[in-house]
């Protein structure tokens, strides 16, 4: 378990779709995994959602414990890993192109420890316009 959970500074994100200060718990071991579900919807002016775009930030200053985000829908998946914990940078933006519907976002890490993460996400249409996106208040699996 790390001695300190958090980096010293916290810069507020300007993105509206984000999950902040979420934890993977040491009690659930290195296999601790959180599962979130987000729906991408269609809009009468912007059309259908084409994809979900997201990335993850490791807020705990323990570089040996990498945190990753997996986006999954309809048999398609992609992974993004934050290789430096405790700074303000997110992992690379990744996306799954699977249209409207429910996308699953999975947060996991490589070692045992209480680890804080942030996720930024949004749905887009084919032109890159932000389409209606649901905002989950609780995960569907919380470890």
């Amino acid at each position: 378990m790390v001695l300190s959970l958090f980096s010293a500074g916290y810069a507020a994100s300007v993105a509206a779709h984000d999950l902040k200060f979420k934890l993977l718990f040491a009690t659930n071991g290195a296999g601790a995994t959180d599962v979130w579900e987000v729906s991408c919807l269609s809009s009468s002016t912007l059309g259908d959602s084409a994809r979900l775009v997201a990335n993850i930030k490791d807020f705990s200053p323990d570089d040996s414990n990498f945190i990753s985000l997996v986006i999954y829908k309809d048999g398609k998946a992609v992974t993004s890993t934050d290789l430096v914990g405790g700074n303000d940078a997110y992992s690379p933006l990744v996306s799954v192109n699977a249209g409207n519907g429910v996308y699953t976002m999975i947060a996991n890490h490589t070692r045992v420890g209480n680890q804080v993460y942030f996720i930024e996400y949004h749905c887009e249409n084919a032109a890159g316009d932000h389409t209606p996106t649901t905002v989950p208040t609780t995960p569907v699996q919380d470890q």
């Binding site: 509206a16 779709h17 579900e37 987000v38 729906s39 919807l41 809009s43 009468s44 002016t45 912007l46 429910v102 949004h122 316009d129 932000h130 389409t131 209606p132 996106t133 649901t134 905002v135 989950p136 208040t137 609780t138 569907v140």
Partner: peptide, 21 residues
């Protein structure tokens, strides 16, 4: 109640993501 955000600015519905699961 929890609500969804709609950045597209056109339509929105109540967020029942948790319940829908």
């Amino acid at each position: 109640l929890t609500l969804q955000e709609d950045r597209g600015g056109v339509s929105c519905q109540g967020d029942r993501a948790d319940l829908a699961a």
